[in-house]
Amino acid sequence: MRTEQSVLRLSIVVTFALAAFGVIYGLLISSGSIIFDGIYSLMDASMTMVALLVSKLITASLAESTRTKLVQHFTMGFWHLEPMVLALSGVLLIGTALTALIGALSSLMNEGHPVEFGKAMVFAVVQLAAAVTMVVYTRRANRKIGSNFIELDSKAWTISAALTGALLAAFIFGWAIRGTTLDWMVPYVDPAVLAVVCLFVIPMPISTLVQSFSDILLVTPADMKHQIDEIAEKVVARYGFVTYRAYVARVGRGRQIELYFIVPQGLPPRRLEEWDRIRDEIGREIGDEGPDRWLTIAFTTDVDWAE
């Protein structure tokens, strides 16, 4: 399990198993919070499958031996799909939580409903153990892999663990107050905890949504632009160029950089090998050379070609 795709595959299998378990078990004991937990897991697994597909496309587009006709139709790569999938995942997770919140509030206003708390606690313990295990596993795996998809998947498992922990606490509380003076609260425990969990879940994907939409809209990252500007200014001073134009964007895991250097007219000619040497020098200074860096460096005497 050392690759992005292998981690996502395992996550999908575990999530689908827990989702099916949650939905069926929730229906059997009439627990809306457990049903929501299962539906949330099912939604997460579906988006993880889409993330796995995009990961495969990105990998295939970078390997000559695995190029296909589909890849040849997307010569600029598949990086742009990554923020789209992350944004869609965030929107769906928030939408699912909002729908469940409305259902929980409706149940609270209609005197709630009883739940078999003993059986519910069994579910919560199994679900919590599985979720915590996956949180630890995905975080450790992503320390070396550094994948946005795995990071989002890890967040989803964290949310699932927090959600299930809240359910377990609520079920223990509901079980404990049966037959006491607080027995009147028993029908409200399940919808109340569902509402609280939904309010906790809804803000969680927001940071991912903001970053994803920034990537989709090609918003220039300030830190990345500052780095490229510093390097370009040094190159202009070093070689006596007039000025430069820099265009940078981060699209998912991809970094797209275009640099145009305005060369003085009448400059003594250089061999093409010399211009390539300057390009290599700039590339090394920028760093992060690899399949996820798209770097274009051009030289011209006409500033119109750079704008």
Rank of each mutant, 00 (worst) to 15 (best):
L52V: 15
T75D: 11
F36E: 10
I150T: 12
M134D: 14
L168A: 07
A130D: 13
K144S: 14
I172Y: 09
R178Q: 09
W175V: 13
T133E: 05
G165P: 09
V115Y: 03
V115L: 08
G90L: 06
A45S: 09
W79Y: 07
F173D: 08
L98Y: 11
T138Y: 09
V54D: 14
G179I: 01
D37H: 01
T68A: 00
S160W: 07
I172Q: 10
W175P: 12
M109I: 12
L108E: 02
A104R: 13
M76F: 03
L81M: 13
F78Y: 04
N110W: 08
A141Q: 04
G103K: 14
H73C: 03
V132Y: 11
K69P: 00
T48Y: 15
F78T: 00
A129F: 07
I35Q: 10
I58A: 00
V132W: 08
G95I: 12
M134F: 13
L92M: 11
S147N: 10
S41T: 13
K119L: 10
D44Y: 09
A120L: 02
V115W: 03
M43D: 10
D44F: 05
G112T: 05
K144P: 08
R143L: 07
S41W: 09
A170Y: 08
T66Q: 00
V50C: 10
G38L: 06
M84Y: 11
A141P: 09
H113P: 14
D153N: 05
L93S: 13
G95Y: 02
G174L: 06
N148L: 10
R143F: 09
S160K: 13
K69Y: 00
W79Q: 03
G165K: 03
A87F: 01
E111K: 07
L93W: 06
F74M: 04
T48V: 15
G146D: 04
S160A: 14
E116P: 15
H73R: 04
A166R: 12
S61H: 00
L167G: 07
L62D: 00
I172H: 14
L88G: 13
A120P: 03
A130I: 05
L70A: 00
T66A: 00
K56P: 01
L57M: 04
T133Y: 12
G165C: 11
A45C: 06
M121S: 11
V136R: 01
R178K: 15
G90K: 13
T96D: 06
A124G: 05
F173P: 07
K119C: 15
M76N: 09
I172G: 14
A141K: 06
W79C: 01
G77A: 04
H73Y: 06
S65G: 01
A97S: 15
G112I: 04
A169E: 08
Q72K: 01
I102R: 08
H80Y: 12
G95K: 02
H80A: 10
A166Q: 12
M109V: 12
S154C: 15
V125N: 14
W157G: 02
F149E: 11
V50F: 14
A124S: 06
A97F: 04
M121W: 06
M84L: 15
